[in-house]
Each structure stands twice: as structure tokens, then as C-alpha cells.
Design a binder for these strands. Structure first.
Lengths: 343, 343
DNA sequence: CGGCCAAAAGGGAGCGCTCTCAGCAATGAA
DNA sequence: TTCATTGCTGAGAGCGCTCCCTTTTGGCCG
């Protein structure tokens, strides 16, 4: 275990002694140096460097009641998180933003229901300044367990009835879906199908709604419920081909399913996009670009969503801001259609 | 921002008052209840529940100098982390193990060199009990910056000269590679090529060594250096086909490259496995299973590696254990060949 | 050159907890 | 009955820091 050496780390006191000033002055310098005269600032800085002083966060938190830490809760039953770079990208955005604000990222992964209580207890314990919560399913009990902690959700929670003080960041799932389907229609396709995501998530529901907005009286057989996985997309496509062999376009609720659908199409001897146009959602690079054929899809800026979530949370946390300005509200990011080969 | 309500949380003091005992007794009960008589334990427990008491971790850390938190450092230049479920799986294993030990996971993602100093400072700051560090490249400056924090590395660090007190968890890259290549040879293939990973990582070097162990005097043109990405694998395969059109088998240093290679092969009209057998490494589900054709590969249990890293670190941290037994040492996990269709 | 005032520096309390040690009751031995 | 012993429980001292409040300093005006 590389290095256990624990020579006692220097305290504020030690720095103060070395610089020949009081603890309070060192504290002021360490926290920005406001209202301390230049020569002293200089002396203190030198002492800090020489001693390699690093503030003890525990002691600081004890009195300030801030932690400079934010919890990221990923409540996802099993697999998806790991087949899907989605969260990794969000994490990256979050991490960048938190780093810029000197906050730490405490990652809470849950496995099954029991874990929810654990997470709730942790959040309630006031160990973090706020929470970013992901991937709630409609019936997820977690939100009701979260109290007393400022929270921003990733994706519109199912129970968010309009506003009600819930803050979330989402992309324009419905609008993006509409654009995708309109694109297919614009291509001259008339038998446009939809492979839905798991309908216990609002993103899947919203994308389905977007599909219906355009295909107002679509044959119900052209809509197949699936689950956001490649395998699910493949199965759904087969079923679609059985139900309506004349299908000439498919909008899949995410890229993974679109890729699965293309596999099923190839298997059945249909060409993409000549026989059946396929369009996905997310623009999950590099999979979309390297799919065969490269996938036309609806892009959402996932990393930006993560960054925004963190920014919103931190803004809400920032007590110094003017009272009115810093009540954050939800944000819905735009999507863009990325045309490649598949549609 | 869902819920800002901050009624002051109850302290030990409050619980003590309610239970009619001293602070010390409550503390004892909260920390396991050793040496406290049953009726008192009961009374304290009730008071804790009634008040919804949760210990203040900051106050506790201040005196115990433990944090019940471990940093996970992922130092990866840009893309790979996000195209590759590798880290997600490791994180999951780590998370499980830490949760079981009531430790928190503080995630530190670095972006470029400047970040290293930040991470080093954070670790040196003694905010966590230990660190799990990933994905070091041979020339990575991070290890030299880490001092005073027990650390376990994910994957053998390049500079770990035998032992030297460095603890890491890795899989048997060399042995796995040997097995893969032997399998190809056993299939009767004689022009076996290798697409390497990024050779600034020990995993890539070890896999190359394993290849050479078996193909002792391979034509150097049958070895192409690449970078672990699908695009890299594709380019490498094309080059291989140009250099040695008679190549009849390829061992790619990971699955992503194997998939890229298969794409290049298809593009050039070679059938897999009939004309060219392909084998990967990692067994990155579901990509390997759903590749076309399903990919034969060398499996390593990534989640288990994560779990093991955490376990090793925690064991080293555990002061209560007997002095001798708990000096952890590195672990190399076995790999297994998974036969599917591509070889 | 003294006095006044604002700004800068210091003193000290206390955040909530753990842990050592003292106190004290109950028990058994002398 | 008395005294040592054991085993709980309580009192109190800090852990390292921030922040309020007091004291000191230094600039400037009269």
C-alpha cells in the first residue's frame, strides 16, 4: 500500500506561528485574503508553501456547514448504465463543472430497492451540499425519500407535475422525436414505425408522444414497445417486420435500439436506407458514426446536460447571490437532427 | 431546488438529553454499543430513532482522522473512458465493495495534465482514507505526485519494478493473450497477426508479449500498433491486409479494435471466421455477443477487479487487523477464453 | 502633534464528536 | 465488615477551523 507515512500535517496554528501572525489572519488569507495587507498576505503565503499546509476540510465543514461536495445518485436497475456511455458523459460534464467550483463528486450507485434507503439516509445525513439524481423510473421511490437536500434531477421526473419546485435538466425529447419523424416523412416514407424505449421513463414517453404528434393516426401495429437495449431493438424490429412487412421507416427511441433494428433488417434482407430508413436518438458517438450504415439520429448534448445540472445546483447553493436571481428553474435543451446515411 | 428546509439537525447532545444519559454513552451505542448495558442501549436507540439523529461525519472525522471515503481517480486523456464501459464496470465493483464497508466513493476525473496537480493536492489533503487509481500511462506523472495516501492501482503501473510496495490489481494479460493466439494456431491458422493497444499502457505491452510468446518468429509486418479504439482497429486491419494479404487470423488487443477489424475485413470481402479468424480481449458485453459475427474473446472479470481493488485498499486501511496479515499485495486475476463464432 | 476613525489584526468561543480517565456501583475475597 | 477488583457511565478536553468581537494600528485632519 504505497506510502502510509503519516507525519502530522501542519495546522493553521503552525502556519500562523511560522508567519508570525494570528490564526484568524491565516484563515483570512487562505480563504481569499480579503482585508489583509499585502506584506502579511505574502508572509502567510510563504509559510503555507513552506509547510505544505492544506486546510482540514472536516474542521472547516464542522463550522461552516458546507461540504463542498455534491452527491451524484445513479439509480439504475442493473445493466443499462454499463452498456451505455450515457452516464459516463454526464458524469464528465458534472465533474468539469464541480471541479471549476472546487466541489467534490460523491458517487452513489444503487443496486435494487434496499439501496434507496441507504442513499436517502446518506443524503439526509447532510454530508453533501446537494444531490444530482438520475434515471428515475416512474415508480421510483427515491424522490419521496429525499428530504432536506437541494436536488437537481437528470431528465424530467415522472411525477413532476408542471413545476412544483422540482428542478431538472432534460433535452427536448418530444421536439426531437417530431423532427426525426418529420424527416422520415419528408423522405417520402409513409409506413413509419416507432420502437419505444422503456415506457416507465419519461424520455421514452416523450419520444413516443413526439412520434404521435406527427403520425397522428398511425397504425398501432407500427408502434412496438421496447427497452432501450440493442437486443430489444432487434426483437422489436423483427416483430415490426412480421406485423407490417411493408414498413419503410423506423424511428427508434435511442441509438442502441436503432443499431439492433438495423441488424434485424439486415438479417431479413432489407437494405438500409433503401428499403427501410432508420433513425435513432442520442447521437451516441462513436457508435452512431461507426454503425453500418452510419446512423442518422437526433443529437442531444449529454455532457452539456451534466454540466448544466451541476451549474444549476451550485447556483442554488450559492448563498451570496441576490435573493431573487438565484432560484434556479428547470432547463430543457434543444436537440438537433444529425443526418448520416441510414435515413 | 426541491427542499431547502434546514431545521437544525439533532446532535449527540440532544440524543443524550432525551435518553437521559451522557454524550459518551450515546457515542458508544452509535458506534456499536460495546460495553453498554442492554436497557441503556435500548433507550438510546429509541431516542436516536425518535429524533432522527444522524452522526455528523465532519465532527467525527475531525477527531478520528478517518473519513470513510475513498477516492477513485480516473486519469484518462479524453475519449476512451466514454466509449468504453470498462470503467463503469470497475466503478460498479468498487461501489459495491465500498458500500459494504460504509465507505463513500469520491470520483476524481482528470482532464489533461493540469488536473494532476489538483488531484495530487486533494489526495495529499487527507480528505480520503485512500485512493484507487486507474489507467496510468507509462509516462504519467500522477503516481510520483501521490504521497501519504494508501493507494491501489488498477492495472499494473508501468514503473512497478517487480514489487517495491506498489499494490495493483490486474488480469493476466500475457497469459490471456497466449491462450488466444494458441487457440488461433490450434485452428490451423499460420499467418496470425496482432493489432496492439496503445503501447504506453502495460496491458497493451503485456498482450503483445503474450502474442510473441507463441508466435516466436512472427513476421514483423503481422504486428500493427494501434490504440484500443474501433477506428484504430479498422485502420490497423486495412494496413495488415495491405502488408500481408494472406493473413488468416488476427488477435486484437481488445474487443473494440476487433470489431473495427471485422468491419475492415467485411469491407474487403473477407469472411470471418472462414477467411480470417478474429479474436478480441476483454469480453465487453453486450458488444462481443452482438457483434457480427459474435466475437471470440478473452474474458476478464472487470467488476471483480474493481471489487478486489476496493477490498485490498480497505484491508490495508483496517487498523484493527493483526499486524502481519493485512499487508496487501498485488493480485493478478486469471482470464478465460470465450469461444463464439469469430474464431 | 494630538485625536479620531476606519481598517486590519488578534483573541476566543464553539462547531459535534471521540476518547481518556475519573468516578462509582456492584461484586467477591479476606 | 472492609478493601480490592471489575465494569459501566460520566465529565471534560480537545480535534482544526471560522467568525464574531475587541484591540490595535495607521492615516489624516484639525
Amino acid at each position: 500500500m504505497t506510502d502510509q507515512s503519516t507525519q502530522p500535517r501542519p495546522t493553521l496554528e503552525a502556519v500562523a506561528a511560522r508567519a508570525g501572525v494570528s490564526r484568524a489572519t491565516v484563515s483570512r488569507v487562505v480563504n481569499g485574503g480579503e482585508g489583509v495587507r499585502e506584506p502579511l498576505v505574502e508572509r502567510v503565503r510563504r509559510a503555507v508553501d513552506e509547510l505544505g499546509y492544506v486546510p482540514n476540510q472536516a474542521a472547516r465543514s464542522l463550522v461552516t456547514r458546507r461540504h463542498d461536495a455534491v452527491a451524484v445518485v445513479i439509480a439504475e436497475p442493473e445493466t443499462r448504465v454499463f452498456a451505455d456511455p450515457f452516464f459516463a458523459l454526464q458524469l464528465r460534464g458534472i465533474s468539469k463543472e464541480l471541479t471549476a467550483h472546487d466541489s467534490q463528486l460523491v458517487l452513489l450507485l444503487t443496486e435494487g430497492r434496499d439501496d434507496h434507503a441507504r442513499v436517502a439516509r446518506y443524503l439526509a445525513g447532510g454530508h453533501v451540499d446537494g444531490a444530482l439524481v438520475f434515471s428515475l423510473h416512474l415508480d421510483d421511490p427515491l424522490p419521496s425519500l429525499i428530504h432536506g437536500v437541494p436536488t437537481v434531477y437528470g431528465g424530467r421526473p415522472g411525477w413532476s407535475d408542471g413545476s412544483h419546485g422540482v428542478v431538472y435538466v432534460d433535452c427536448d425529447n418530444r421536439g426531437g422525436a417530431r423532427e426525426a419523424v418529420r424527416h422520415l416523412v419528408g423522405l417520402g416514407r409513409t409506413r413509419v414505425a416507432h420502437i419505444t424505449g422503456a415506457l416507465d421513463q419519461t424520455s421514452a414517453v416523450d419520444r413516443l408522444d413526439g412520434f404521435r404528434d406527427v403520425m397522428v393516426d398511425a397504425d398501432p401495429r407500427l408502434i412496438v414497445e421496447s427497452d432501450f437495449t440493442p437486443g430489444g431493438g432487434e426483437r422489436a424490429m423483427r416483430e415490426l417486420l412480421d406485423r407490417r412487412p411493408d414498413v419503410d421507416a423506423v424511428f427508434a427511441a435511442n441509438d442502441l435500439m436503432a443499431v439492433g433494428a438495423m441488424r434485424a433488417l439486415r438479417e431479413r434482407g432489407r437494405r438500409v436506407p433503401e428499403d427501410v430508413a432508420v433513425i435513432g436518438f442520442d447521437d451516441m458517438l462513436p457508435f452512431t458514426e461507426q454503425a453500418d450504415p452510419p446512423l442518422t439520429t437526433v443529437r442531444q448534448d449529454i455532457e452539456e446536460m451534466g454540466r448544466l445540472m451541476a451549474r444549476l445546483l451550485l447556483r442554488g447553493l450559492d448563498r451570496s447571490g441576490s435573493a431573487v436571481a438565484d432560484v434556479p428553474s428547470s432547463v430543457v435543451l434543444p436537440t438537433t437532427l444529425v443526418r448520416r446515411v441510414s435515413a
